[in-house]
């Protein structure tokens, strides 16, 4: 899961050897594709989904993504974030964590973030979130080995634990 144009399809193609279209604009993928990847000596199913900004779908493509997530309650979710826009990506990642999915976070487009002079402390982020966080550059394949090896470390995390790790958070005055 991840925002539009963060590189989900590139991950999918790299991990499964499949060929789904990859392009440099949001909205390339509008339907899901299933594929198989080798993982710890067995074949595991991986699903490529369209980009979504949140779990409250606003359009047909997002509907597809959310539906796939809900239909696969016992999956591990690879959350692909654009490292140059971490905050926005974290919103979706937190939503998925709150729903109890085991998550691995990929900080993709690490190179773009470096270009923009954005530095992320991935280890600290990992400690706060309590889920594996791996910097990646999908188009060149950097960080993939580490990402795959950490899939088995993914476990559901309670949001209260994350709040505690982050040093607490005031409940919002305007709550929804």
């Amino acid at each position: 899961m991840g925002h539009p144009n963060v590189g989900k399809s590139v991950f999918f193609n790299r991990l499964t050897g499949a060929k789904v279209l990859e392009s440099n604009y949001p909205g390339t993928t509008v339907d899901f594709t299933k594929g198989w990847m080798r993982f710890g000596g067995e074949d595991v199913e991986l699903i490529d989904v369209p980009g979504a900004f949140s779990l409250e779908p606003k359009d047909r493509a997002e509907e597809v993504a959310v539906k796939i997530l809900e239909e696969n309650r016992d999956s591990v979710v690879i959350c692909v974030l654009d490292a140059s826009k971490v905050e926005r990506g974290l919103y979706l990642a937190l939503e998925i964590i709150e729903r109890g999915y085991p998550v691995v976070v990929a900080l993709n487009m690490w190179d773009v973030a470096e270009d923009k002079n954005i530095r992320i402390d991935a280890e600290k982020l990992e400690r706060i979130l309590g889920v594996p966080v791996v910097p990646t550059i999908a188009i060149s394949g950097e960080g993939f080995k580490e990402l795959v090896s950490k899939i088995k470390e993914a476990a559901p995390v309670k949001i209260e634990k994350i709040i505690e790790n982050a040093g607490g958070v005031e409940s919002a005055a305007v709550s929804g």
């Binding site: 905050e87 974290l90 939503e95 709150e98 992320i120 982020l125 982050a166 607490g168 919002a172 929804g176």
Partner: peptide, 20 residues
């Protein structure tokens, strides 16, 4: 689940400690 604002507050907290 957290409210939208609470989630954003949390993200701000996290990013202050990890993103530069």
């Amino acid at each position: 689940p957290l409210s939208v604002d609470e989630r954003w507050n949390l993200i701000e907290k996290i990013s202050k400690q990890t993103v530069e």
